[in-house]
Computed example of a mutant assay.
Amino acid sequence: MENQSAKKVWFVTGASKGFGLEFIKQVLANGDAIAATSRSIDGLKKAAGTDSENFLPLEVELTDETSVGNAIAETIAKFGRIDYVVNNAGYGLAGSLEELSDAEARHNFDVNVFGSLNVIRQVMPHLRRQESGHIFNISSIAGVTGGFPGFGIYCATKFAVVGFTEALQVEAKPFGIKVSLVLPGYFRTNFLESDSLITPAKQMEEYKEVRNVLSIHQNQIKGNQQGDPVKGVAEILKVAGIENAPLYLFLGSDALQMAQNKISFLHNETENWKHVSTATDF
């Protein structure tokens, strides 16, 4: 085993850009170690720009559980343990439910949902043996509110992350493992760039609102997002390992506002229709 000087060990997916790349910078600056994954190890090394002994770049295909398992094993072999896991990898898909093909929708789920599940299955045995650890699953405010025309499948993947993370939190607690959901709003990363936001191969001219919403995202919101990824990652690092870590961690004032709006909406819906809800009991 090498390099026992690092304080803590992080395992972060999707680390060649955005939040993931910022994790590399801040984790190393804190003196911790980080194993970072990407589909291209050359691109990852170039983006990270470091040869620190505390940095382990890994080429991983998250939809291949064997590839994920090998990456976890390499991390343990080099650093001896894993303390924090960040399921960060994912991409956006912008198209109406009707025009997106089955293959396009399923691939979004394969990466955004099943990729994280592959990591969880492979890392949990190690965390259980340690009786410690903290898993951060990166969802989105789009995992709480789905009212974005053209983003239904993407929202569905992020809703799925919310659902399985809530279950994981109670499943992992007896083993001393903490679990947190991170739900960012709009952050000034490359999420709205063409390599991170995919559009349908076959678009339908009938969906003018969907095209308009996409145009707003690409031409008005992109580059003007109010969230600072440097500050976002810094706040996650503050939460890491604290005794009473939150299950829900909203990042950004916009995310907080949208979450509060959803809470108000649900409250009003349940109050307005409780006479129907309660009419079905024996």
Rank of each mutant, 00 (worst) to 15 (best):
A36W: 05
K8V: 09
K202S: 13
G49N: 12
E269I: 09
F175K: 06
S194Q: 10
V233H: 01
V86Q: 05
Q26I: 14
G143L: 05
L28K: 07
N224Q: 14
V68G: 08
A255T: 00
R128G: 06
E74S: 06
G49Y: 04
N212S: 14
F19E: 03
G185Y: 02
L183C: 05
G90T: 10
K78Y: 09
Y207T: 05
G223P: 06
A160L: 12
A105Y: 05
E74H: 03
G90Q: 11
R128H: 10
N137H: 06
T13I: 10
N268M: 10
G232P: 01
A77N: 13
P200R: 08
S215L: 08
S196A: 15
E171T: 04
G115P: 07
V9I: 15
E74A: 13
G147D: 14
L192G: 08
S264I: 01
E65D: 10
I135A: 04
D32C: 06
H126N: 14
S40W: 11
I72V: 10
F164L: 14
T145M: 02
Q257T: 02
A47L: 15
G43I: 09
L28C: 10
K231T: 10
A15T: 02
L21C: 08
V113P: 01
N224L: 13
D83T: 06
G80R: 11
T145K: 01
P174K: 14
A35Y: 01
F151G: 04
G18V: 06
L168S: 03
N118L: 10
V85P: 02
D102G: 08
Y186C: 07
I221P: 00
F136Q: 02
K202Y: 13
G143E: 04
L97R: 02
N54D: 04
F55V: 06
F23W: 07
S116V: 06
A255R: 02
W273F: 14
Q257A: 09
A240W: 12
R128W: 11
Y91Q: 08
N261L: 01
A71I: 03
A255V: 01
V119A: 03
F250G: 00
E193T: 10
S140I: 05
D102C: 11
G176K: 10
H267P: 03
A240E: 07
Y186R: 07
P246N: 13
G49A: 13
G223Q: 12
S38E: 09
G115I: 11
E104K: 09
K173Q: 15
A15P: 00
N87C: 14
G185E: 00
V162I: 13
F191G: 02
A245M: 07
L58F: 11
T145H: 00
N137R: 03
G232V: 02
N108S: 15
S101E: 14
A240T: 10
N70F: 08
S196G: 05
Q225H: 06
C155H: 08
D281R: 15
I198D: 04
I76N: 00
E235P: 00
Q130C: 13
E2R: 11
I72F: 00
V213Q: 08
G43W: 13
P229I: 01
I177H: 05
F175N: 04
V123W: 05
V27T: 11
M258Y: 02
L44V: 13
G232T: 05
L93Y: 00
M258C: 05
K178R: 15
Q220W: 11
G152C: 07
Q218S: 07
N30Y: 08
G143P: 04
G80H: 13
T75M: 03
R128D: 11
D110R: 15
I24P: 04
A94H: 12
H267W: 01
A201T: 11
